[in-house]
Design a binder for these strands. Structure first.
Lengths: 162, 162
DNA sequence: TTGATAAATGTAACCCTATAACATATCAAC
DNA sequence: GTTGATATGTTATAGGGTTACATTTATCAA
């Protein structure tokens, strides 16, 4: 299971590696990994949590990389479209992908207390959802799977947490 | 399979029955099924699709039932809290529940072309998501499952739809 | 290398979604 | 009836996202 997100890890290294992987992927697919796009991904990777678009924009503004909403939304759109980042619908926020490049359907575990987010792997075509779709003739193109709850840390602190 | 939403059906009857069911449920649980709450549910049931809060508010305003956002958001909050309606995160919209009263985790099939929405049943604790949660010690309290794609009708009209 | 085309950015204005805060009214139960 | 809780009315504002259009930068073929 490739769930990541609730454990400690070598963070500088993981940021560096992820950027390098995206760089390679962009070169291979003739995608422009421009300064703004790169910086937005760096921010998401370093913070390692779900961030609002305007929160990211504040940082860009401080760095002179752009000051208007479309700047960050365009960068995020690029990152999400190519699978380098994901949108967490439930939070209206964005998070860097933990295994970019690979074609995948992400599922998220979101802690309601500390807002930590872990990315797992979903297979929407299988399971009950896939069966429901097949039964009705619905063709699934994309899926949002987001579980809210308590992460291990916050669960320990809670009174009566299962 | 209790997927509903892409088939024709006796609509007046289904609205009437659903309202009656909610009425009973509220009486049994000492919940106040007030005029605004009832009307919002009626609107959602009759339209039989995902509606934005402000779209609903427009109708309420025309009927003199309230003109400010909190009116509709409070009613929606009541309906969602008690499982009489659901929020579709992906659309920032709301839809009446197709089997109110029962405690359930809904999953939605959303047509990207005609915006039709069908409600199916999900079991987040099972499947890959449940396994990922169990592995990391995450406790799932609630889940959002939304599949985007093409409904049977729109699929037929599309060029190369699986 | 230059010129044409496409892609990306800068910027202003605006729209949609949602909540905070506080006053008022209504209900439920003793 | 009085009281405490629940629901509504209303103003203002916060937060998230897009449209539209001008300008610049990259790509690629001639």
């Amino acid at each position: 299971m490739d769930t990541i997100g609730f454990e400690a890890h070598d963070h500088k290294g993981c940021v560096r590696d992820a950027i390098a992987a995206v760089e390679t992927h962009c070169a291979e697919h003739k995608l422009q990994f421009t300064p703004v796009r790169r910086r937005v991904l760096e921010i998401l990777l370093s913070e390692h949590r779900a961030m609002g678009a305007y929160e990211i924009l504040d940082i860009l503004r401080d760095e002179g990389l752009g000051s208007q909403p479309p700047v960050v939304y365009r960068a995020l759109d690029f990152l999400v479209t190519h699978g380098f980042a994901h949108k967490i619908e439930r939070l209206n926020a964005f998070i860097a992908c933990t295994h970019p490049g690979q074609n995948h359907t992400p599922a998220f575990l979101i802690c309601r207390q500390c807002d930590a987010v872990a990315e797992a792997h979903a297979e929407p075509s299988k399971g009950m959802l896939g069966r429901a779709a097949a039964d009705t003739g619905f063709v699934i193109e994309q899926a949002v799977v987001e579980a809210m709850g308590l992460c291990p840390k916050c669960c320990k602190g809670a009174a009566n947490c299962a």
